[in-house]
Simulated assay, not measured.
Amino acid sequence: MSDAGQIVAAVPHAALLVADNDRILAANARSAALFGEGLAGRHLITVIRQPSVLDAIEGTRSSHLAQETRYLTNDGQQDVTYRVSCAHLDLAGLAGVLVVFEDVTHLEQAGQMRRDFVANVSHELRTPLTALLGFIETLQGPARDDAAARKRFLGIMAREADRMNRLVRDLLSLSHVEAQERMRPDDQVDLAEIVRATRRSLAHLAEKNAVSFDEELPGVPVMVPGDADQLRQVLTNLIENAIKYGGHGCRVGLRLDGPAEGLGLRGPAVRLTVSDSGPGIDPLHIPRLTERFYRVDSHRSREMGGTGLGLAIVKHIVNRHRGRLRIESAPGEGSRFSVILPVSG
């Protein structure tokens, strides 16, 4: 192998060495996977046609200064972004521009997720904030001496402020859970008692919606390694959703099975299922239900006081416990959310 070939082969990313006449002197195996075989000897323009990359190579050749740009392509499944680094090379008569293509698609996707997240948070906060500012202006002006309007507007303002408070609370909770996701909890907790305690804490909400519970819980403790507060939050989010979206007068089922083998995890596990007899969910939506701010019905969710973060929080907590979340639903058949947790660390 030539000196040029050895240099390029040592680069851990796709790399080309381009001579001053724009011929490719050498290419490594990763670049062959990106641009095809038989690259050595070909003219650069027959391999790369994106002007930004060609300009960066020409700029490095003329100035001998390193330059960076982006190379955009598609692998047949998704858009792929490469960070292109150009550096002048002149060793023992071997002169040219070393062009390295580093796949940064994951960084671009993470950046887009952050931008989408900020945009969603801004929207979710701006909507109630706009309403609050509007009512404040009205109370300072036309409704200043109208007692009935004041009472009605203050009630709406209280609901909008509560909506913002729930959103901030869930954002903080999600941030806390994500920060702990790699740290598996090892305290032994009684999952059956957590289910009962959570159901009792939501009795008022269930009564308000004329919802009745069907419980199938063992009469003995069911011990699992876990964080009691976080598991309580999982139960609260799932049961609240079942009550709110199941509809007035629906039935909510709480069932705890196991410990047993064959529940989808290695070794013995328990399965906690929260189900409802509501209208159900189109299977089209199920893969996205745990995404932040994803809603099947945005208007109804906001009316119910949802922040769009509840199931995202559930997913991260279940992941921290090395468990699995399964969602089953169909229109007219209700919904069933199952949390499967290992019984040993």
Rank of each mutant, 00 (worst) to 15 (best):
D3G: 08
A4E: 09
V8F: 02
L16I: 03
L16C: 03
V18M: 01
A19V: 04
A19R: 15
D20V: 08
D22L: 08
L25W: 06
A29D: 14
A29P: 08
A32T: 15
A32H: 13
E37M: 05
G38W: 07
G38T: 09
G41R: 10
L44D: 00
P51W: 01
P51R: 07
E58V: 04
G59P: 00
T60C: 13
S63H: 02
H64C: 05
H64Q: 10
A66Y: 00
L72Y: 12
G76I: 11
Y82T: 04
Y82F: 15
V84W: 04
S85Y: 01
C86V: 03
C86I: 01
A92M: 02
G93K: 00
L98C: 03
Q109M: 11
G111Q: 12
D116M: 06
A119D: 10
H123F: 08
E124R: 15
R126N: 11
P128N: 11
L129W: 09
T130R: 14
A131S: 12
G134P: 11
I136K: 06
I136Y: 10
L139A: 12
D145I: 02
D145W: 05
K151C: 10
G155F: 05
M157P: 04
E160L: 06
R166I: 06
L172N: 14
S173I: 02
S173R: 13
L174K: 04
V177G: 03
Q188D: 07
V189A: 01
D190E: 03
A192D: 05
T198V: 14
A203K: 12
A203W: 08
H204R: 14
L205H: 10
S212E: 15
F213I: 08
V222W: 09
M223Y: 05
G226L: 04
D227R: 02
Q230L: 13
L231Y: 05
L231T: 06
L235T: 05
T236V: 08
N237S: 14
N237A: 13
L238C: 10
I239C: 08
I239Y: 08
N241V: 04
G246D: 05
G246T: 04
G249V: 02
C250D: 04
L254H: 07
R255F: 06
L256I: 11
L263T: 06
P283I: 00
L284E: 09
R300H: 07
E303F: 07
T307I: 11
L309C: 10
A312E: 02
V314I: 05
V314S: 07
K315M: 05
A330W: 04
G332L: 06
G334L: 05
F337I: 02
S338A: 15
I340C: 08
P342D: 02
V343D: 06
G345Q: 13
